[in-house]
Each structure stands twice: as structure tokens, then as C-alpha cells.
Simulated scan of single mutants.
Amino acid sequence: MPAPGTSALVVELPAAAGLLDAAAAIDPALVRAGLPPHVTALYPFLPAAELTDEVDAAVTALAAAHEVVDVPLADLVVAPGFVAAAAPALQALADAAGDRWPGVQPYGGRFGPHPPAHLTIAMGGTDEQNTEVARRVEGLLPLTARAEALHLVVLTERGWQLRLTAALATPAR
């Protein structure tokens, strides 16, 4: 469980809310409270005490270097205590975030320097719960969600709070 002062870079995907709703219908504890459906670009990010105007500017520049993108969510990833939808369309952004802050290991280094981009649907469930979440979610896939911004969020005593929204670049036409 993250502690207050933890921050993260995330890309919200509101169109994927139904996937989290399906998991919450089985057990609300399977879905992270306080965060909308999202793909994590870098977690944990910098401690809140280290977030400065310069960091905000770097996050904004990172977002501006990546275009708004439609994110197909079609493939489920199921592992013990975990159900997610793969989000390869956001892999370049997640990799760039990790490369920009090489001293920050995604997920504490548990999955290497470039873990696969994904939308977490359920966490902490039993095998039976995961099977049921996967069954319900498969009926909602595939779906496509639009990624338009990179968000810097900070965990406080009151939950996750938005610090910065940085727009992704508009694709050239």
C-alpha cells in the first residue's frame, strides 16, 4: 500500500470505466479507490517533497513529445492477484518516462526497467475472483480508449490528488 507523499504519472482512460465497474461488482476492494481507469507511465514517481516547477515542466515536455492516441484494449493479462488489459499503444510513453527519470525504478524494479503498459482492472483478488473478473471483462472487450493527457498525481491523507495535467501533442494532419 503506498504511503502519503507517493506520486505517479498516469494516463487516464475514462472510456475503460466499465472494466473497473465489472471488477468492483464482484468485490469493490479489487479496484483502487480514488483513481479513475488509467495506464501508469511511472509509479512510484518522485516523492511529493521533490516535486518542483522544474519537474512539472519536465512532465509537460514529456507529454508534449507524445501524441494523443487511441488505445486499443483487447488482451487480458491474468496473474495471481492481478487482472489487467494490455495497453501497448502507451508503451512508448511509459518507456520515455522511465528513461527521463532513470533513478526512479518503475514498480520498485519488480518488473524491470520497462514493464508492459497496462490498465489494471483488479488487484488483490483470489484466483476465483480473478477468473470471474476475466470472464466478465472479456465480454466488454475489445474497446478503444482515447489517451489525451499525462497526469501527475500525489497520494495525500485524503487520497490521490491531481497535481498537474499535461496535454499530449495533437497529431499532425
Rank of each mutant, 00 (worst) to 15 (best):
M1H: 12
P2F: 05
T6W: 01
S7L: 05
S7Q: 03
S7I: 02
A8L: 10
A8C: 10
V11E: 03
A15K: 02
G18I: 09
G18Q: 07
L19G: 09
L20W: 13
D21A: 15
D21C: 04
A24I: 02
A24P: 01
A24D: 03
A25V: 04
D27I: 09
D27W: 08
D27G: 08
V31H: 02
V31A: 02
V31F: 02
G34E: 05
G34R: 02
P37H: 09
H38R: 12
H38N: 14
V39K: 04
V39Q: 13
T40L: 04
A41N: 07
L42P: 00
L42R: 00
Y43H: 15
P44Q: 10
F45P: 03
F45A: 14
F45T: 07
P47E: 11
A48N: 01
A49M: 06
E50N: 10
E50M: 10
T52C: 08
D53G: 07
E54F: 00
E54W: 00
E54C: 00
T60S: 13
L62M: 08
A64W: 02
A64K: 02
A64Q: 14
H66L: 04
E67I: 00
V68P: 03
V68G: 08
V69K: 00
V69S: 08
V71G: 02
P72H: 11
L73F: 13
D75R: 15
L76Q: 14
V78H: 06
V78S: 10
F82P: 08
A84C: 11
A84Q: 10
A85R: 01
A85W: 00
A87N: 07
A87D: 06
A89L: 13
L90D: 05
A92H: 11
A94K: 05
A96W: 03
A97D: 04
D99Y: 04
D99C: 03
W101N: 03
W101Y: 11
W101K: 03
G103H: 14
V104P: 00
Q105L: 15
Y107A: 12
G109L: 12
G109V: 09
H114E: 13
P115Q: 13
P115A: 11
P116M: 01
A117Q: 09
H118G: 02
L119P: 14
T120A: 13
I121C: 12
G124S: 03
G124F: 01
E128M: 11
Q129K: 02
Q129G: 02
Q129D: 05
Q129I: 04
T131I: 07
T131W: 10
E132F: 04
V133K: 10
V133Y: 06
V137S: 11
E138T: 13
G139K: 15
G139H: 15
L143K: 11
A145G: 13
R146T: 11
A147V: 04
E148T: 15
A149T: 12
L150P: 04
H151F: 03
V154G: 01
L155N: 00
T156F: 10
T156C: 10
E157F: 00
R158W: 06
W160G: 06
L164Q: 15
T165P: 01
A166K: 13
A166Y: 14
A166D: 09
A167F: 09
L168T: 07
L168V: 08
A169Y: 06
P171Q: 10
R173C: 09
